[in-house]
Amino acid sequence: MKWMHQDVQNYTKAKEYIDSAIMPLIPFSFQGDDELSQLAYQHEVMQILMTQIEKQLKGRVFLLPVYNYLKQNKLEDEYERLETVVNHVNEQPFKHIFLFTFDKKWRKYSSKIDAELIWLPAPQQGDLNQVETQQLVQSQVSEIEDLIKEQWDE
């Protein structure tokens, strides 16, 4: 399910089945043009990953709006804000919460936060028109899918 009118109607009728929330953590920053292009690319890939996962697992997964933050922000402060969000979602209740990020800095919080924090290696900038790039992204989608299913089976 997506954060959209029609999907939310379905969600409220079938909450007991839709027990997993997924949310991408996406930094942005206008400091430096190189980084700008890198971050924008990562954002694009992350959006594709999330929409694909939502499509495959629509009936059990709720894709939350993106968690955006300024790249240069102190992560301690950011962590507090994220924790508030996660706690709120946990109260819904969702049984599983998966957070996805390419940003290494989050890793040290993975044991602290009340959610499954999944760090993915940042993709090399590529051309999303290229079949090879698409296959790479596609294989990452399958890996993430397997990971989620493993959690379900536990």
Partner: peptide
């Protein structure tokens, strides 16, 4: 798959809305 098709999942969402 063209880029347009590939990104379509995202766009369908926006379009639908």
């Amino acid at each position: 798959v063209s880029r347009r098709q590939f990104l379509n999942y995202t766009l369908t969402g926006v379009g639908g809305f």
